[in-house]
Amino acid sequence: MRWLQNLRYDIRKNPALLLMTLPVIMYVVVFCYLPMSGIVLAFKQFDYSEGIFGSPWCGFKNFRFFFISGQAAVVMRNTVLYNIAFIIVNNIVEITVAIFISEIGGKWFKKTTQGAMFLPTFISWVVVSAFVYNIFSYDFGAFNHLLRSIGGEPVDIYSQSTLWVFIIIFLNSWKHVGYGSVVYLAAIMGIDAEIYESATLDGAGELQKIRYITLPCLKPTVVILVIMGIGNIFRGDFDLFYQMVGTNSLLFNTTDVIDTFVFRSLLFSQEYGMSAAVGLFQSVLCFAFLTATNWVIRRVDPENSLY
């Protein structure tokens, strides 16, 4: 028990330091480790008056319910596919924007455009949902206004579940472009300028320089970000999906993710047992994926492994 020895040492020699970590440690114990014991709920028939530990056991019934209902396949598929789409689209957009920004001159121009791209990062998804309503509302939206004015038929976008796939992917990219491009821009700024200079002397064009210098230099950053994205592939962005879709069940088929499903089952139908089961299932998957991806990062680039 090495850690126990260390702890004993610190209790004797560094009591003040130990005390200083206490707020965070206590917090983690209460709000992260205590709820872990609550995962037994996934195997119980929750009875409000009996509490978590007094409720009767029910085996795998909660899990069976989730899988048989047919929703398991849908929400898992959506969660994974959206995350894959986010990884691909966001990285392409962010890298392109970062390269472009690094190439153009004019401090004022750079600052203004970057400032504009950061605005979406600052607002909540609630505000974004107001934006979406403003543009896509059936009766008053600017989009349908435009369609009508050119003689087209208005579209009720809030009942078109396939369209939302694109809207959501677009908005996610829209909200993160400022943030992500700064990450890549920082990596580009770290590339030795002499490499570009000698390439120019050798007669390399702009696209060649990007293809043979910038992109290869960005590779480590891309690899890390992609692997981290894969580690979180079973985690749905609750804020995004809940604000865009909410309780509009017409769209659930293509937009419901694990996190929104759990939230609704808990808050609206009070299915404690089942939503706990789904939550546990998701946690286990996340754990497996994060551990696996971290193992990969350690081999690719130990500097950037999470632990």
Binding site: D10, L280, S283
Partner: peptide
């Protein structure tokens, strides 16, 4: 000396958590 142990102790919560429901009930 306990720095690595405590770091792992805290970091583990990123890798695994009880999910929304037990936390909500807490």
């Amino acid at each position: 000396k306990s720095r690595n142990f405590f770091t792992m102790f805290v970091f583990f919560t990123v890798l695994f958590n009880g999910g929304l429901v037990p936390w909500y009930i807490l």
